[in-house]
Simulated assay, not measured.
Amino acid sequence: MACAALPLLSGCSMFNSQKEKPSVAIGSADTLYNNGIDALRTRRYKVAADQFEALQQNYPYSGYTANAQLMEGYAYYLRNKYPEAAQQLDRFIELHPTSPDAAYAFYLLALCYYEQIGAVSRDQQMTAEAMARLQDVIARFPQSKYARDAQLKIDLCRDHLAGKEMLVGRYYQQQRAYQAAIGRYQRVLQDFQTTNHVPEALERLVEVYLDLGLTDEARRTGAVLAYNYPDSRWYRYTYDTLKSYKLLTDKTPAPGKLVTAPKTEAAGTTASPAQSAAHNVGRADAPPSLSSAPVSPVSSSELSSDGGGSALTGNLGHSGVPASARGARTGAP
Rank of each mutant, 00 (worst) to 15 (best):
S121G: 01
L8N: 12
L152Y: 07
P22V: 11
G256M: 14
A328K: 10
A102D: 07
L6D: 07
D136R: 05
R91K: 15
L225S: 02
L205D: 01
T31N: 13
G183F: 02
K243Q: 14
D90C: 02
D250R: 11
T252M: 06
F141N: 04
K19V: 13
A286S: 08
L167W: 14
A177Q: 08
E165F: 15
A218F: 00
Q193G: 02
P287K: 02
L32S: 11
A201Q: 03
G331W: 02
A181G: 04
L189E: 01
L89W: 09
D90N: 13
A139H: 10
G213N: 00
C157K: 00
A25T: 12
P97H: 11
L290D: 08
G317W: 15
T252Q: 13
A119T: 04
L312R: 07
E217W: 05
L55R: 12
L109I: 02
S272E: 00
A139P: 05
H197Q: 06
G308L: 13
E165A: 12
Q173Y: 12
A147D: 07
A110V: 06
P100R: 14
L32H: 08
T249C: 11
D30I: 06
E217H: 05
N35C: 04
R158T: 07
S244H: 09
E94R: 09
N58Y: 13
G317H: 10
A278G: 13
Y245C: 10
H197T: 03
